[in-house]
Amino acid sequence: MIKRYFSLLLIVLISLRLSAQVWVVPAENETRKSPFAFDDASRKAGSDLYYTNCKSCHGEPGKNNAIPLVPPPPDMASAKMQGNSDGAMQYKLISGRGPMPSFKNTLSATDLWRVISFVRSFNPSYKQEIASASAAAGTSAQNVKIVLSWLKETNQVQASISGVKDKVNQPLAGAEVKLFAKRYFGYLLVDEPRTTDALGKAVFNFPKDLPGDSTGYVQLVASLTNDVAFGETKADTSLVIGVPTYRPPLTEKRAMWNVVSKAPIWLLLSYTIAVFGAWGFIIYVLLQIRAIYRAGGRKEND
């Protein structure tokens, strides 16, 4: 009875807590739309992204097999999920909340829309509205290339961006660029996003203490914020600009978790001393039994 009362109370409390935490989406984000039409290609790409990044928590769409977290990750095919506008979905993907991580630096803007394209494929009544051309403002270009170089004197990284515009390959001015350093998981944003000057160059201040690999290599990735207008462009360059860092593997030194040949000295000593000590006495006592036997034998011989 008490158990039932408590579980009821718990359910009430949890639902109160959840209803108090509606995920508010700002009005300007609410109305954002995808700059491109969702098609089979975008749905396929979105599906791959979904199964890599989202499925572990949200489960397979339509199967209601999300993992039990608080708040529960909604199923993609659910009315709750499909009730979001495209813009709201994009906002939630970018910002994250609680156990839901932010995908701002993990997925590109285009990839985010691809995921939404895939999610929408589970809603038969969905009609896509595409952003008007003016929304995707700014210049656009083809065959955009980003080249990264290191300005040693000022410890800065320079991104030079060019692209084919009006059929001429030329520097791209006024494009916003982000610079990332690759980490074990995800990317670290380096400096602020910068906008290219008239020569198509943007300069990032590079920190002096960023750890690189054992020879100081740091893998840098630069991408354009507006990858819808410029196409998906990424520079992926390794430069020797980090602090050379040698991280010894956890199995290098003697440790409790290591193999037996790398057991801690104190443990080897204590174990050996204890075992030899105890068994030394045991063997001594076994020899005493022999001594008793001999003592008895002598008397008989006398």
Binding site: Q288, I292, Y293, A295, G296, E300
Partner: peptide, 17 residues
């Protein structure tokens, strides 16, 4: 009984062990 015949020597060894 390992040839035990109650000699003081045997008792001494036994008690020590």
């Amino acid at each position: 009984s390992v040839k035990w015949n109650h000699t003081p020597k045997q008792y001494q060894i036994l008690m020590k062990a």
